[in-house]
Amino acid sequence: MKKFNLSINKIIIVLFLSIKPLYSAEMTDPIKVDWSFKGLTGTFDRASLQRGFQVYKEVCSSCHSMQYLSYRNLGESGGPEFSEAEVKAIAASFEVTDGPDSQGEMFTRPGRPSDTFVSPHPNKEAAAAANGGAYPPDMSVLVKARKGGANYIYSVLVGYEDPPPGVTLDQGVYYNKYMIGNKIKMPNNLEDGLIEYADGTVSTVDQMAKDVTTFLAWAAEPELEERHRTGVKVIIYLLLLTTLVYLSMKKIWSRIDTEV
């Protein structure tokens, strides 16, 4: 009987392990990138985050909002860690609508670090109208909102291709190998040398895609570094306490004849 139970346990384990893979078929699996923020102690590449912000600001932000981020986040630890002066300058480079003032009028003023990222459009409907009916999703948590996460975002950014023969595309629709259904309404906005990086890095499409994806990964999980750091400490602590409690338990149960 014991043998039977054991083999069943094995079947259960195999079943569990095989649960994940079988999902939808009409998209290519995303490219696996060895991100620095992967793994138990992963951290963000600061330079890449800063470059990624530049890509966001110069390319993405004309269509995509990031309403849950504030300029102050750019200076917080675990993020791009721009200096306080840089954050102030970045914030001030945006026109923020504020008010109403004492006359009841709305007015614009230079942004402050406490302001949230300025959206390119006043609302979802306006954003959709300006983009051929397709709402460019808010990018604050985009990496968490897509199956495949950072790998998927990166893959879509570099996945533009000419459509294979037989596939016809409507006006304003593009072919992308990694997009679900292979059709995307966002044009390929990246081309080699598009951006003059402040740190002098050569802006290849691949480089820009990686940088902006890193930036978006941070935007979605600004707590990631702190989470990893705390996690390692917590696990070490728990292992230590578990060992002590285990020894205590052995000690206590040694008073009677039963094995624990």
Binding site: L244, S248, K251
Partner: peptide, 20 residues
């Protein structure tokens, strides 16, 4: 003695965790 040490250590470290 060893038992006492074990228990004291467990309690102390446990209390630190609860505080954290």
């Amino acid at each position: 003695n060893r038992r006492d040490f074990l228990f004291t250590a467990s309690y102390t470290i446990g209390a630190v965790g609860v505080g954290a």
